[in-house]
């Protein structure tokens, strides 16, 4: 009994039912356990794996500002709209409580999006497609991304970042290729 010491030798062979169950469970485990690494190689979406240490936050801010100066194409609600070249390094900065700047990307082109925070942890959450990454201060996370559908996307923050957490919304515009 689960509440008494068992007999002197309790190490006994499994019965047929037990064998069957364990075999079934193992099989299922195998399938789901091979799935992850296999999918990692064949799947289209994987958590990115490229990270840099940002010693001084101002260094990252300077990269953002440099990109904004070079590629700014407009403004919305005081936020610059930036249209970087396809394939280039794009820098997005999180701070309490905004995502800066607004990106304008081209459908079907690939970008290397660098994410870093100027203060505390934030959550980069692209809606409505619902893709989520953690943004830490002191680290640069490089998300390589190819937008496949044109439209307006919003970036909400899904890591608690203080009392204005629910105010933190940014924007990303994906335009059809060519224009």
């Amino acid at each position: 009994m689960a509440i008494k010491e068992p007999e002197r030798i309790w190490w006994k062979p499994y019965t047929r039912d037990e064998r069957l169950w364990v075999a079934m469970a193992l099989l299922w485990m195998m399938v789901s356990f091979v799935f992850m690494p296999v999918y990692h190689f064949i799947g289209a979406q994987n958590p990115p794996n490229e990270t840099y240490r940002v010693g001084d936050k101002e260094k990252f801010r300077a990269l953002v500002d440099g990109m904004v100066n070079k590629y700014k194409v407009g403004e919305e609600k005081g936020f610059p709209i930036v249209k970087p070249e396809p394939g280039s390094d794009v820098f997005v900065q999180a701070s309490m409580w905004q995502w800066y700047p607004i990106l304008e990307l081209q459908q079907g082109k690939t970008y290397r999006i660098h994410l870093s925070s100027m203060d505390i942890t934030h959550g980069f959450s692209i809606q409505p497609i619902n893709m989520n990454f953690t943004v830490l201060p002191g680290y640069d996370y490089v998300v390589t991304l190819t937008p496949t559908t044109a439209g307006d996307y919003y970036i909400i923050c899904n890591e608690y970042c203080g009392l204005g957490h629910h105010l933190m919304v940014g924007k990303m515009i994906v335009k059809q290729g060519g224009n």
Binding site: S32, M36, P47, G123, N132, T134
Partner: peptide, 12 residues
Amino acid sequence: GTEQFNIIRHNT
């Protein structure tokens, strides 16, 4: 808990 699925569920 799978790596890829977690992208679309993390912190939701």
